[in-house]
Design a protein around this nucleic acid. Structure first.
Length: 245
DNA sequence: AACCGCCCCAACCGCTGTGGT
DNA sequence: AACCACAGCGGTTGGGGCGGT
């Protein structure tokens, strides 16, 4: 009825603060609910996305390590475009991030290929050499705040490399030829599973860093904001009881 | 200095899966 | 068993920044 128009587009700092605070209160689950009670005129979906892809304290940001790049390639060959699944194996990385990374990588490859064909007489880049490390030294953002990614290795799984085992889900993870990496990841998962703000699901491997300063800063500000503006004080709302009682 | 093109990332959209009633 | 609401996923797009001309 009074329903204001749903906000879209980039999030403001204030919105972020609000969202973070409400997730802190109610956990990272009930997005529709959070969207409503927070007063953000956003959809639950939008809130979730913002949290998962940007605000979650466990996010790494920055360049993918060569290890991560390799892992992405491997996992994609195994599972195809199951980004969220792949993301679960990369602590601190989001499906969106991986998806974007992959997309960029594929585009570069496509371009390289084209160029190679253009210079057909002498194909300079034999893209057939699987796992030859192409260093797509993409000029861009070499030092950008969020960091850029550079390509890992070669291997052509366009976008559904999954064909091999895909649905098998197989979880044949054991026989994966990347034991070291797996161990690494398993360990990091075990170590990071204790995230305070939400009962992250099995998959949510956004590890909680030793309190990222930006996170603390953000949360502190929130408290202040809520004090000063006494934002609808969710504590006093029936919602609070509904959830906690 | 201005313009153009490319690249990256954040965010949206539509569909599917899942749990509750 | 059917329906509904919500969460999650994958695909796609638009904006902004950077480098090159």
């Amino acid at each position: 009825m009074v329903q204001q128009e749903v906000r879209k587009g980039p999030w403001t700092e204030q919105e972020d603060f609000k969202l973070v605070s409400f997730v802190g209160l109610f956990g990272d689950r009930r997005w529709d609910f959070i969207a409503k009670v927070s007063g953000l005129n956003r959809t639950g979906k939008s809130c979730r996305l913002r949290w998962v892809n940007y605000l979650h304290p466990g996010l790494k940001r920055g360049k993918m390590t060569p290890q991560e790049e390799r892992l992405v390639l491997e996992l994609h060959s195994k599972w195809g475009n199951r980004w969220s699944r792949i993301a679960r194996k990369l602590p601190g990385r989001t499906d969106n991030e991986i998806k974007n990374y992959w997309r960029t990588l594929m585009r570069k490859k496509a371009q390289d290929k084209k160029r190679g064909e253009a210079a057909s007489s002498t194909p300079t880049k034999p893209s057939s050499s699987v796992h030859s490390s192409i260093s797509v030294s993409s000029k861009k953002h070499e030092v950008d705040p969020h960091g850029s990614k550079k390509a890992g290795e070669e291997s052509f799984y366009d976008t559904g490399g999954a064909s091999t085992q895909d649905e098998g889900e197989g979880e044949g993870e054991g026989e994966f030829s990347m034991d070291d990496i797996w161990k690494d990841i398993d360990m990091s998962e075990e170590n990071n599973n204790s995230f305070v703000y939400g009962e992250s699901e099995e998959g949510c491997n956004l590890s909680c860093p030793s309190a990222s300063s930006s996170w603390e800063y953000c949360y502190e500000n929130l408290r202040v904001m809520m004090d000063e503006e006494s934002l609808f004080c969710p504590m006093s709302e029936p919602y609070f009881y509904a959830l906690n009682g």
